[in-house]
Protein backbone atom coordinates (compact mmCIF):
# COMPACT_ATOMS: atom_id res chain seq x y z
CA UNK A 1 0.00 0.00 0.00
CA UNK A 2 1.24 3.43 -0.87
CA UNK A 3 -0.24 6.54 0.68
CA UNK A 4 -0.06 10.12 -0.53
CA UNK A 5 0.80 13.04 1.72
CA UNK A 6 -0.50 16.53 0.93
CA UNK A 7 0.60 19.85 2.36
CA UNK A 8 -2.30 22.16 3.14
CA UNK A 9 -1.31 25.81 3.29
CA UNK A 10 -3.51 27.99 5.47
CA UNK A 11 -3.81 31.63 6.42
CA UNK A 12 -5.93 33.19 9.12
CA UNK A 13 -7.92 30.03 9.69
CA UNK A 14 -8.72 29.26 6.06
CA UNK A 15 -7.10 26.57 3.92
CA UNK A 16 -5.73 27.73 0.57
CA UNK A 17 -7.97 26.86 -2.38
CA UNK A 18 -5.10 25.27 -4.29
CA UNK A 19 -4.28 23.10 -1.31
CA UNK A 20 -7.89 21.93 -1.19
CA UNK A 21 -7.51 21.03 -4.87
CA UNK A 22 -4.35 19.07 -4.07
CA UNK A 23 -6.16 17.15 -1.32
CA UNK A 24 -9.01 16.25 -3.70
CA UNK A 25 -6.55 15.17 -6.37
CA UNK A 26 -4.54 13.09 -3.90
CA UNK A 27 -7.71 11.40 -2.67
CA UNK A 28 -8.68 10.50 -6.25
CA UNK A 29 -5.21 9.14 -7.02
CA UNK A 30 -4.88 7.30 -3.71
CA UNK A 31 -8.14 5.54 -4.52
CA UNK A 32 -6.67 4.37 -7.80
CA UNK A 33 -3.41 3.07 -6.33
CA UNK A 34 -5.06 1.53 -3.31
CA UNK A 35 -3.85 3.91 -0.64
CA UNK A 36 -5.07 6.85 1.40
CA UNK A 37 -4.57 10.59 1.17
CA UNK A 38 -3.32 12.22 4.35
CA UNK A 39 -2.88 15.96 4.84
CA UNK A 40 -0.44 18.03 6.87
CA UNK A 41 -1.17 21.44 8.38
CA UNK A 42 1.68 23.35 9.97
CA UNK A 43 1.26 26.52 11.97
CA UNK A 44 0.48 28.22 15.24
CA UNK A 45 -2.67 27.31 17.12
CA UNK A 46 -4.50 25.64 14.24
CA UNK A 47 -7.96 24.58 15.36
CA UNK A 48 -9.05 20.95 15.11
CA UNK A 49 -12.03 22.11 13.05
CA UNK A 50 -9.85 23.65 10.36
CA UNK A 51 -7.73 20.49 10.21
CA UNK A 52 -10.69 18.11 10.26
CA UNK A 53 -12.35 20.13 7.48
CA UNK A 54 -9.89 18.58 5.03
CA UNK A 55 -11.80 15.32 5.48
CA UNK A 56 -14.59 16.76 3.36
CA UNK A 57 -12.13 16.97 0.44
CA UNK A 58 -10.99 13.38 0.79
CA UNK A 59 -8.21 13.25 3.38
CA UNK A 60 -8.68 10.35 5.79
CA UNK A 61 -6.13 11.61 8.29
CA UNK A 62 -4.83 15.10 9.02
CA UNK A 63 -1.60 15.77 10.89
CA UNK A 64 -1.35 19.03 12.76
CA UNK A 65 2.05 20.34 13.82
CA UNK A 66 2.83 23.40 15.90
CA UNK A 67 5.58 25.35 14.10
CA UNK A 68 6.19 28.79 12.54
CA UNK A 69 3.81 29.66 9.68
CA UNK A 70 4.55 30.89 6.21
CA UNK A 71 8.05 29.40 5.99
CA UNK A 72 8.99 26.28 4.10
CA UNK A 73 11.67 24.55 6.11
CA UNK A 74 9.57 23.74 9.21
CA UNK A 75 7.13 22.02 6.84
CA UNK A 76 9.98 19.99 5.32
CA UNK A 77 10.85 18.82 8.84
CA UNK A 78 7.26 17.77 9.52
CA UNK A 79 6.71 16.01 6.21
CA UNK A 80 10.17 14.46 6.31
CA UNK A 81 9.37 12.90 9.66
CA UNK A 82 6.07 11.53 8.37
CA UNK A 83 7.81 9.94 5.40
CA UNK A 84 10.31 8.37 7.78
CA UNK A 85 7.67 6.81 9.99
CA UNK A 86 4.73 6.22 7.64
CA UNK A 87 4.04 4.35 4.48
CA UNK A 88 4.18 7.19 1.97
CA UNK A 89 5.31 7.07 -1.60
CA UNK A 90 4.18 10.44 -2.92
CA UNK A 91 3.69 14.00 -1.79
CA UNK A 92 1.43 16.42 -3.66
CA UNK A 93 1.38 20.22 -3.43
CA UNK A 94 -1.07 22.75 -4.86
CA UNK A 95 0.40 25.66 -6.78
CA UNK A 96 2.09 28.44 -4.87
CA UNK A 97 5.38 29.71 -3.67
CA UNK A 98 5.60 27.65 -0.48
CA UNK A 99 4.62 24.48 -2.33
CA UNK A 100 7.64 24.93 -4.59
CA UNK A 101 9.98 25.51 -1.68
CA UNK A 102 8.67 22.72 0.53
CA UNK A 103 8.45 20.24 -2.35
CA UNK A 104 12.03 20.91 -3.45
CA UNK A 105 13.40 20.78 0.11
CA UNK A 106 11.54 17.54 0.75
CA UNK A 107 12.86 16.00 -2.47
CA UNK A 108 16.39 16.78 -1.29
CA UNK A 109 15.77 15.35 2.15
CA UNK A 110 14.14 12.15 0.90
CA UNK A 111 16.34 11.74 -2.15
CA UNK A 112 13.12 11.68 -4.17
CA UNK A 113 12.20 12.80 -7.66
CA UNK A 114 10.38 16.10 -8.03
CA UNK A 115 8.28 17.66 -10.80
CA UNK A 116 6.92 21.19 -10.70
CA UNK A 117 4.21 23.07 -12.63
CA UNK A 118 2.28 19.83 -13.02
CA UNK A 119 -1.07 20.17 -14.83
CA UNK A 120 -2.29 16.56 -14.70
CA UNK A 121 -1.51 13.35 -12.84
CA UNK A 122 -2.39 9.88 -14.12
CA UNK A 123 -1.95 6.36 -12.82
CA UNK A 124 -0.03 3.83 -14.87
CA UNK A 125 0.75 0.38 -13.50
CA UNK A 126 -0.05 1.50 -9.97
CA UNK A 127 2.42 4.40 -10.19
CA UNK A 128 1.79 8.11 -10.52
CA UNK A 129 2.78 9.79 -13.76
CA UNK A 130 2.87 13.60 -13.81
CA UNK A 131 2.42 15.85 -16.85
CA UNK A 132 4.26 19.11 -17.03
CA UNK A 133 4.11 21.71 -19.82
CA UNK A 134 7.61 22.93 -20.68
CA UNK A 135 9.32 25.46 -22.95
CA UNK A 136 6.64 28.10 -22.64
CA UNK A 137 3.84 25.51 -22.80
CA UNK A 138 4.90 24.41 -26.28
CA UNK A 139 5.40 20.81 -25.22
CA UNK A 140 4.22 18.53 -22.43
CA UNK A 141 6.62 16.12 -20.76
CA UNK A 142 5.73 13.27 -18.44
CA UNK A 143 7.56 12.35 -15.26
CA UNK A 144 7.79 8.89 -13.79
CA UNK A 145 9.52 8.24 -10.49
CA UNK A 146 12.11 5.57 -9.80
CA UNK A 147 11.07 5.54 -6.15
CA UNK A 148 9.36 8.30 -4.19
CA UNK A 149 7.84 11.16 -6.12
CA UNK A 150 7.05 14.77 -5.23
CA UNK A 151 4.44 16.47 -7.39
CA UNK A 152 4.00 20.25 -7.31
CA UNK A 153 0.91 21.42 -9.16
CA UNK A 154 0.54 24.47 -11.32
CA UNK A 155 -1.82 27.08 -9.96
CA UNK A 156 -5.47 26.02 -10.35
CA UNK A 157 -4.44 22.68 -11.89
CA UNK A 158 -6.29 20.59 -9.33
CA UNK A 159 -9.93 21.23 -8.67
CA UNK A 160 -11.25 21.17 -5.11
CA UNK A 161 -14.12 18.69 -4.84
CA UNK A 162 -16.11 17.99 -1.70
CA UNK A 163 -16.48 14.27 -1.23
CA UNK A 164 -18.26 14.45 2.10
CA UNK A 165 -15.75 12.24 3.91
CA UNK A 166 -14.26 12.81 7.32
CA UNK A 167 -10.78 12.75 8.75
CA UNK A 168 -9.19 11.98 12.09
CA UNK A 169 -6.85 14.66 13.40
CA UNK A 170 -3.52 13.73 14.92
CA UNK A 171 -1.21 16.20 16.63
CA UNK A 172 2.41 15.74 15.70
CA UNK A 173 5.40 16.78 17.76
CA UNK A 174 8.37 17.60 15.59
CA UNK A 175 11.79 18.78 16.65
CA UNK A 176 12.74 21.42 14.08
CA UNK A 177 16.12 21.13 12.42
CA UNK A 178 18.51 23.94 13.22
CA UNK A 179 18.29 25.61 9.80
CA UNK A 180 14.50 25.66 10.03
CA UNK A 181 14.89 27.86 13.09
CA UNK A 182 17.22 30.33 11.40
CA UNK A 183 14.49 32.15 9.49
CA UNK A 184 11.78 34.03 11.35
CA UNK A 185 8.69 35.72 10.00
CA UNK A 186 8.73 39.42 10.89
CA UNK A 187 5.56 40.35 9.04
CA UNK A 188 3.29 38.20 6.90
CA UNK A 189 0.74 39.11 4.27
CA UNK A 190 1.36 42.85 4.04
CA UNK A 191 -1.02 44.41 1.50
CA UNK A 192 0.81 47.05 -0.50
CA UNK A 193 -1.06 49.83 -2.21
CA UNK A 194 -4.77 50.57 -2.30
CA UNK A 195 -7.37 47.88 -1.69
CA UNK A 196 -8.87 47.74 -5.15
CA UNK A 197 -11.53 45.19 -6.09
CA UNK A 198 -11.08 43.53 -9.46
CA UNK A 199 -12.58 40.11 -8.96
CA UNK A 200 -16.13 40.92 -9.99
CA UNK A 201 -15.20 42.99 -13.06
CA UNK A 202 -16.58 42.10 -16.50
CA UNK A 203 -13.87 44.06 -18.26
CA UNK A 204 -10.29 44.12 -17.03
CA UNK A 205 -7.67 46.36 -18.60
CA UNK A 206 -4.35 44.92 -17.42
CA UNK A 207 -1.01 46.69 -17.60
CA UNK A 208 2.56 45.39 -17.46
CA UNK A 209 6.12 46.60 -17.62
CA UNK A 210 5.49 47.82 -21.16
CA UNK A 211 3.67 50.81 -19.66
CA UNK A 212 7.15 52.11 -18.91
CA UNK A 213 6.46 53.83 -15.60
CA UNK A 214 3.87 54.09 -12.84
CA UNK A 215 2.19 57.00 -14.64
CA UNK A 216 1.64 54.72 -17.64
CA UNK A 217 -1.25 53.14 -15.74
CA UNK A 218 -3.26 56.26 -16.47
CA UNK A 219 -3.70 54.90 -20.01
CA UNK A 220 -5.28 51.75 -18.57
CA UNK A 221 -7.42 53.72 -16.12
CA UNK A 222 -8.71 55.88 -18.97
CA UNK A 223 -9.62 52.90 -21.11
CA UNK A 224 -11.33 51.12 -18.21
CA UNK A 225 -13.19 54.36 -17.53
CA UNK A 226 -14.36 54.48 -21.14
CA UNK A 227 -15.79 50.97 -20.89
CA UNK A 228 -17.51 52.19 -17.74
CA UNK A 229 -19.83 49.99 -15.72
CA UNK A 230 -18.20 46.97 -14.27
CA UNK A 231 -14.62 47.47 -15.42
CA UNK A 232 -11.34 47.73 -13.55
CA UNK A 233 -7.57 47.85 -13.99
CA UNK A 234 -5.28 44.89 -13.23
CA UNK A 235 -1.50 44.40 -13.22
CA UNK A 236 1.40 41.94 -13.52
CA UNK A 237 3.71 41.09 -10.67
CA UNK A 238 6.60 42.88 -12.31
CA UNK A 239 4.84 46.23 -11.98
CA UNK A 240 3.40 45.49 -8.55
CA UNK A 241 6.86 44.60 -7.21
CA UNK A 242 8.11 47.83 -8.75
CA UNK A 243 5.47 49.75 -6.80
CA UNK A 244 3.64 51.03 -9.90
CA UNK A 245 0.27 49.52 -8.99
CA UNK A 246 -1.42 48.01 -5.90
CA UNK A 247 -0.87 44.38 -5.00
CA UNK A 248 -4.63 43.83 -4.76
CA UNK A 249 -4.83 44.25 -8.55
CA UNK A 250 -2.22 41.61 -9.37
CA UNK A 251 -3.20 38.70 -11.58
CA UNK A 252 -1.36 35.39 -11.55
CA UNK A 253 0.39 32.77 -9.51
CA UNK A 254 0.83 34.85 -6.37
CA UNK A 255 -2.07 37.15 -7.22
CA UNK A 256 -5.70 36.75 -8.21
CA UNK A 257 -7.30 34.35 -10.62
CA UNK A 258 -9.90 36.03 -12.82
CA UNK A 259 -12.18 35.16 -15.73
CA UNK A 260 -13.80 38.37 -16.98
CA UNK A 261 -15.74 38.70 -20.24
CA UNK A 262 -12.89 40.78 -21.65
CA UNK A 263 -9.25 40.83 -20.56
CA UNK A 264 -7.27 43.46 -22.39
CA UNK A 265 -3.53 43.14 -21.73
CA UNK A 266 -1.28 46.09 -22.55
CA UNK A 267 2.51 45.76 -22.37
CA UNK A 268 2.35 42.29 -20.84
CA UNK A 269 4.67 39.54 -22.10
CA UNK A 270 2.42 36.68 -21.02
CA UNK A 271 4.69 34.74 -18.66
CA UNK A 272 3.28 31.42 -17.44
CA UNK A 273 2.84 32.83 -13.93
CA UNK A 274 0.64 35.56 -15.32
CA UNK A 275 -1.21 33.31 -17.74
CA UNK A 276 -2.36 30.90 -15.00
CA UNK A 277 -4.35 33.72 -13.42
CA UNK A 278 -6.24 34.91 -16.51
CA UNK A 279 -6.32 32.18 -19.15
CA UNK A 280 -9.98 31.38 -18.46
CA UNK A 281 -11.07 34.88 -19.49
CA UNK A 282 -13.79 34.70 -22.15
CA UNK A 283 -12.02 37.04 -24.57
CA UNK A 284 -8.36 37.96 -24.43
CA UNK A 285 -7.00 40.96 -26.33
CA UNK A 286 -3.29 41.77 -26.18
CA UNK A 287 -1.34 44.81 -27.27
CA UNK A 288 2.40 44.27 -27.41
CA UNK A 289 5.11 45.72 -29.62
CA UNK A 290 7.00 42.42 -29.75
CA UNK A 291 5.40 40.07 -32.31
CA UNK A 292 7.07 37.13 -30.56
CA UNK A 293 5.62 37.87 -27.12
CA UNK A 294 4.19 34.66 -25.61
CA UNK A 295 0.89 36.39 -24.87
CA UNK A 296 -0.05 36.25 -28.57
CA UNK A 297 -0.09 32.48 -28.30
CA UNK A 298 -3.16 32.59 -26.09
CA UNK A 299 -4.92 35.77 -27.16
CA UNK A 300 -8.07 35.86 -29.25
CA UNK A 301 -7.09 39.20 -30.74
CA UNK A 302 -3.47 40.30 -30.80
CA UNK A 303 -2.29 43.75 -31.81
CA UNK A 304 1.39 44.15 -32.59
CA UNK A 305 2.10 47.77 -31.89
CA UNK A 306 2.99 50.52 -29.45
CA UNK A 307 0.48 50.82 -26.61
CA UNK A 308 1.28 54.51 -26.24
CA UNK A 309 -0.15 55.10 -29.69
CA UNK A 310 -3.03 52.64 -29.53
CA UNK A 311 -4.49 53.01 -26.03
CA UNK A 312 -5.39 56.74 -26.18
CA UNK A 313 -7.11 56.33 -29.55
CA UNK A 314 -8.87 53.18 -28.43
CA UNK A 315 -10.14 55.00 -25.35
CA UNK A 316 -11.58 57.77 -27.54
CA UNK A 317 -13.15 55.24 -29.91
CA UNK A 318 -14.78 53.27 -27.09
CA UNK A 319 -16.10 56.50 -25.60
CA UNK A 320 -17.50 57.54 -28.97
CA UNK A 321 -19.05 54.13 -29.52
CA UNK A 322 -20.74 54.36 -26.12
CA UNK A 323 -22.10 57.78 -27.09
Amino acid sequence: MANILVYALHYEGAINKNSLGAVSEAARLAGEIGGEAHAVVVGEGISDDVAAGLGAFGATKVFKAEAPEGLSQPVVDVMGKLFETGDYQYAIFGGGLLGFEVGAGLAARLNAGVTMEVTAVNVDGGQLVAERPILGDSSISTSRYKDRGIIIGRLNAFEARESGGSATVETLDVQLSSHAQQATMVQRGEQRGADVDIEGADVLVAGGRGLGKAEGFQLCEDLAGAFGGNSAVAATRAVVDAGWYPYAAQIGQTGKTVAPKLYLAAGISGAIQHKVGMQSSENIVAINKDANAPIFEFSDLGIVGDLNKILPKLTEAVKARKG
Binding site: A112, I140, R144, Y145, D147, F296, G302, V304, G305, D306
Partner: peptide, 21 residues
Protein backbone atom coordinates in the same frame (compact mmCIF):
# COMPACT_ATOMS: atom_id res chain seq x y z
CA UNK B 1 15.05 9.99 -9.60
CA UNK B 2 12.74 11.30 -12.30
CA UNK B 3 12.45 9.78 -15.74
CA UNK B 4 11.11 12.25 -18.29
CA UNK B 5 9.68 11.22 -21.60
CA UNK B 6 6.62 10.95 -23.85
CA UNK B 7 6.84 14.48 -25.10
CA UNK B 8 3.57 15.52 -26.64
CA UNK B 9 2.01 18.65 -28.00
CA UNK B 10 -0.48 20.52 -25.82
CA UNK B 11 -4.11 20.61 -26.96
CA UNK B 12 -4.26 22.82 -30.02
CA UNK B 13 -5.79 26.22 -29.37
CA UNK B 14 -7.29 27.96 -32.34
CA UNK B 15 -4.96 30.77 -33.25
CA UNK B 16 -6.24 34.27 -32.55
CA UNK B 17 -6.49 37.08 -35.04
CA UNK B 18 -3.35 39.22 -35.31
CA UNK B 19 -3.33 42.84 -36.40
CA UNK B 20 -0.06 44.59 -37.19
CA UNK B 21 -0.48 48.22 -36.28
Amino acid sequence: KVVCGDFKAPPAKSAGTIIED
